[in-house]
Nucleic acid binder design. Structure first.
Lengths: 120, 120
DNA sequence: AGAGCCGGTTCCGTTGCAGTAACCGGCCAC
DNA sequence: GTGGCCGGTTACTGCAACGGAACCGGCTCT
């Protein structure tokens, strides 16, 4: 992680407070998980606490479709599938770092969890 | 506007393609509308093509609650209400510029409108 | 009296993101 | 043959965001 939040970046509640979002709820965290190299499905499930496999699959498929990452299935047993960032996906890390820096700087101004009925 | 997209930034379809979002659907556009000074309700409705007054009210209230802008009602007739950025709101323009720059650079890699069933 | 302006509000409906729970096929080890 | 691992899929549900249409009060202008 090149510019982590002080708060746990991989806590999904964090993205509720974060006014700048990359993609949908989990895409940003997935980008962070992949920046140091390819990872497989179960390796992503662990740091992304509590993500439902269905949602993770959907998100990964959408990111693949949009050219942010590649999916490589190896014909082994047990099966192995690796997800890796493309150049386009990697190019999103820059803007993400800026957003994270903003968030770190204004952490105290961010709404407290639970305060909000309408998102911002 | 300090870093506009080539595409019409105030076309809501644009935000469907944009993988980096500030706040909800309209917040980013509202920030842009206010960066050159305060504006009133109807002055916001015009550039934000087709926003329902209800949604605009909700969004402005949420942005006020989160400290991004201030709402000032003058006791005149016809009524006048002015919305102005706070320092916090203004501080979001920087990250937004970065996101817009990214989008301009990768405009051709962004998914075509209508291609998507699942968002990114 | 009637119409218009401003800044909304109310009602109702649709869409889609996200989540839970359960299940699957193929292979392996016990 | 039973259970576990991996990488999912399917069916069902909930909720928040978003939107369209209609309406409102207070005032002014004609």
């Amino acid at each position: 992680m090149s510019a982590p939040l002080n708060a746990d970046l991989f806590d999904p509640f964090c993205s509720h407070r974060m006014p700048i979002r990359v993609g949908d709820k989990w895409s940003g965290m997935i980008l962070r998980c992949l920046e140091d190299g390819p990872r497989r499905f179960t390796e992503l499930k662990v740091p992304l606490k509590g993500v439902a496999p269905k949602v993770l699959t959907e998100t990964l498929r959408a990111m693949e479709r949009d050219g942010w990452l590649t999916r490589t299935a190896y014909d082994e047993n047990p099966p192995r599938v690796e997800y890796a960032l493309t150049e386009l996906g990697r190019s999103l890390l820059g803007p993400m770092d800026v957003a994270c820096a903003w968030a770190r700087e204004h952490l105290d101004d961010l709404p407290r969890i639970g305060d909000r009925t309408h998102p911002a």
